[in-house]
């Protein structure tokens, strides 16, 4: 099913000591990162964490202050953006408004002076890949946001680049559409086999699509791993709080991160097994599938407990005293405390 496959031997990126200063501000600080050929890697971080700056350096739109970028072992530091052959999906898509969808998608092949017939065939193929076959002759302004996003993707993949860079491509879509497009994007990634480098501040996008996630903060890599590794074993307070939610418990031997859904809750004195903490329910927020309980515990910050609504056997109420318990592996000791 690799109908749009790029050169499968290409697409491994190595960033070594990559640094970017803007005046006295360090946007990217000595980043070392190996991106595997064909993987879906997400750069996740809050705004100002340097993730977009990093992507712009890979794309060739920003000069490198120090360090190097290697594609399959060769430095591309001095290769201008127009000769790097990396596809890119821009924030807001940046489709050419005066060209039709077909001309947008065929642009990269057209500037490479490919024969007309080849371009037409490739554009057909890409329209099929993103399921926009009937929309080829429209202008971008006549398409919905989700359709524009797919055109941007088709345009960036049309010349079979070894690497595709995506800068918050779903940011402009509403939540329901976003989830749909996440599935499509993941599917397309598997079909084309191109290395995807994806920038987002949305943890759900990162968790649901990535092979690996890089959590960035203040221009540095905070933690790197598969979604599961990062969620189950956050090493720092920032990682634990940014990817998913965490309660932070101060214990004699350090700070522990504890996910709200891993806590058992029962009315005071009725816990099966050992109650580790006791407290009082301060508030309940109902979300349909889950309920968020805020539990006030003497001498600690409030603890958030997520309970599946259908499993709330005790019909817990506000003001009720409760016991809290969790298994030994649920609480993860953080390294930065």
């Amino acid at each position: 099913m690799r109908e749009a496959a790029s050169d499968a031997k290409s697409g491994g990126l190595t960033l070594s000591g990559l640094t970017k200063h803007f005046g006295s501000f360090t946007a990217v600080d000595n980043v070392d990162l190996d991106i595997q050929r064909g993987e879906f890697l997400t750069l996740l971080g809050p705004s100002g964490s340097g993730k977009t700056t990093l992507l712009m350096m890979i794309a060739g739109f920003l000069d490198i202050t120090a360090g190097d970028i290697l594609l399959d072992g060769r430095s591309i530091r001095d290769v201008p953006a127009e000769r790097r052959n990396f596809g890119m999906v821009f924030q807001g898509y940046a489709l050419f408004p005066h060209m039709t969808v077909r001309d947008n998608i065929g642009y990269a092949l057209d500037v490479r002076k490919r024969p007309r017939a080849e371009i037409a065939a490739r554009v057909d193929e890409m329209l099929d890949l993103v399921q926009l076959t009937e929309f080829g002759h429209r202008k971008p302004g006549q398409l919905s946001g989700g359709q524009q996003q797919r055109v941007a993707l088709a345009r960036a993949l049309a010349f079979a680049p070894p690497v595709l860079l995506l800068d918050e491509p779903l940011g402009a879509l509403d939540k329901k559409l976003r989830i749909e497009v996440q599935d499509q994007l993941k599917d397309i990634h598997q079909r084309v086999g191109t290395t995807f480098v994806y920038v987002t501040h949305d943890q759900e996008e990162a968790l649901s699509m990535s092979d690996r996630i890089v959590i960035m903060q203040q221009g540095r890599i905070e933690q790197l791993g598969t979604p599961n590794e990062l969620y189950e074993h956050p090493r720092t307070r920032f990682a634990a709080g940014f990817l998913g939610k965490s309660n932070f418990l101060t214990m004699p031997d350090g700070t522990y991160a504890l996910r709200p859904e891993k806590i058992d809750i029962a009315p005071g004195g009725q816990m099966n097994g050992t109650a580790r903490l006791t407290g009082t329910i301060r508030g309940i927020t109902y979300f349909g599938a889950v309920q968020k309980l805020m539990v006030a515990v003497e001498g600690r910050d409030d603890i958030e407990v997520d309970v599946d609504s259908w499993r709330n056997p005790h019909a817990l109420r506000e003001g009720q005293p409760v016991d809290l318990g969790w298994s030994d592996t649920a609480a993860v000791r953080l390294e930065d405390t």
Partner: peptide, 13 residues
């Protein structure tokens, strides 16, 4: 960004 997109797609200045 349109200019960046064009360069990214391989178009010379």
């Amino acid at each position: 960004k349109l200019e960046q997109a064009s360069r990214n797609l391989g178009a010379p200045a």
